[in-house]
């Protein structure tokens, strides 16, 4: 099962084993990792699940597109590696990936 690392605003690191096919948001919810509120339950409506993806994994996760990209242009501190974590479906290749949770979500 791929291991995803979440780093919070204060630099604390949390690890979660996430089933392939689940999302990076699910991994945070299922393991009570704070900072990802996921108010819309993963339907790309709330942007309370914003994360910064470790750049070296961007080729694997891909960049935001469509609705997600539009939402991200208007979050606090958007960056090139911004993603809505509910739109990243975990694959084996993501094993070891780190995502950072923005400070504004705390």
């Amino acid at each position: 099962m791929p291991l995803i690392k979440y780093i919070d605003h204060a630099g604390n690191e949390y690890e979660a084993d996430v089933d392939v096919g689940k999302t990076v948001m699910d991994g945070a919810m299922d393991n009570m990792i704070d900072g990802i509120l996921a108010e819309c339950g993963g339907c790309c409506s709330c942007a309370t699940c914003h994360v910064y993806v470790d750049e070296s994994y961007l080729p694997v996760t891909g960049n935001a597109e469509g609705m997600e990209k539009e939402m991200l242009t208007a979050v606090n501190e958007p960056k090139d590696n911004s993603r809505l974590s509910c739109q990243i479906f975990v694959t084996e290749e993501m094993d070891g990936m780190t995502v950072r949770i923005p400070e504004s979500q705390y």
Binding site: S45, M67, E70, A74
Partner: peptide
């Protein structure tokens, strides 16, 4: 179908 405007409207 205007996610960007929604985000700005909230702010």
């Amino acid at each position: 179908n205007r996610p960007k405007e929604f985000m700005f409207a909230k702010q």
